[in-house]
Design a protein around this nucleic acid. Structure first.
Lengths: 212, 212
DNA sequence: TCTAACATGTTAGTAGCTAACTTAACGGGG
DNA sequence: CCCCGTTAAGTTAGCTACTAACATGTTAGA
């Protein structure tokens, strides 16, 4: 059993480095071509050729063309930050603070590339659709970070709703940011989005549960 | 200009009826085959053959295979119900009540087919992704119903966040319903989902906006 | 050195989707 | 009554994302 979980991640340094370099190369050329000629107009063959590999190698690294535009490694970082939050903090605030703190670490170095990517995503229908499937994975990750006992798929409705709403607020902030071409600070927009949600729901209103 | 907007919708009764019949046929056979053999294992050619048309005709009615499984006409109904709500009601409650009232009109007649469809969607990754793109359209529709003045795309961040969160809560309720095989009443789950959101956000918590 | 594991390539195929052109059925104006 | 524009559908051919089967060279370790 020399090819277990560990070996695929490690795999003797030599291979691991090569793997990571090839992957990075593919993703960089993919993003460059997407931004130059658009997502649909770029074929997988072109990306592979630009990175000096065959199209089969591309699919060995990215299951779909969309993944080359959408994949990043922010989510585990957010999950870690959530786990570090005080245990008595409400879930929605854990998420909010993990997001803003995480963004602080990235904003200076990665703001521009993140903005370019998001602008591409929101101008490309195929990519906008792709974010839908990713949201599932994000949601499960956050749920596990918030409630390590219950596994993600069987979490209670309450927790699922809270995480889904938090992700929705974040998505809207990011989309707004991308549409206004990065005019505002994304961290500020995220805080605004969470505030909007709280404001809307603390205007206590008559909730008639016996809807006939 | 005899082929304007109106003529495509109307088009002399004769043709319109035929169009609607063909469309219904295609969708019914598509759903039947999807449920019988799974979404991926069903080809467009099969669906077209079952409905007695060619695969080109299928694509004239549904832009993608996914649309044959996802399209319905609930959204305009919800939008209408929202517009009928009292003007001073908060947006989130307008949505909530429109949803439960709309469901009341459908539940007896369409509960079973809706449940079967949702179970198919949540067990098929390609369809789960497809719901992402539809959410965009739904969101825009609801925003227009809530604020007819501002056009959907340029709505304020606040309104977008509220609608997105409401849709997220609804989606989670539906998913929970589908996963538990329709054990609970969907209307009850939707109310629970909205209550969960309110409960989470009315536990006033220390919101430290100066996240360093 | 021999062998197992691994990254990659080659080739051939499937299926979703599009475009260009054709055919056929109706339907109103001359 | 017939011509012609509109509309529904078919035929054919092609592009591209994605998969599977098999081959090749290269490194790791016994």
């Amino acid at each position: 059993m020399s090819s277990t979980d560990a070996s695929r991640a490690a795999g003797s340094d030599w291979r691991r480095e090569k793997r990571e370099r090839t992957r990075r190369l593919l993703q960089q050329h993919a993003m460059r071509l997407f931004l130059e000629k658009g997502f649909e107009a770029t074929t997988v063959e072109e990306i592979a050729a630009a990175a000096g590999v065959s199209h089969m190698t591309f699919f060995r690294y990215f299951p779909t063309k969309e993944d080359a535009a959408l994949e990043d490694d922010y989510d585990p970082m957010i999950a870690d930050l959530i786990a570090e939050r005080p245990a008595d903090e409400p879930a929605i605030d854990k998420i909010r603070h993990a997001l803003t703190h995480g963004l602080n670490q990235l904003y200076d170095s990665e703001r521009d590339v993140l903005l370019a990517r998001m602008r591409l995503v929101y101008r490309t229908p195929a990519l906008r659709a792709g974010t839908g499937s990713r949201r599932d994975a994000d949601q499960r990750l956050l749920i596990e970070a918030l409630a390590p006992t219950a596994d993600g798929s069987r979490a209670g409705l309450h927790l699922r709703v809270v995480v889904a709403a938090a992700l929705a607020a974040t998505t809207e902030a990011i989309r707004y940011w991308a549409e206004s071409n990065g005019a505002d600070d994304l961290r500020h927009l995220i805080n605004e989005a969470f505030d909007a949600l709280r404001a809307e729901l603390t205007h206590e209103a008559p909730v008639d549960e016996s809807a006939d």
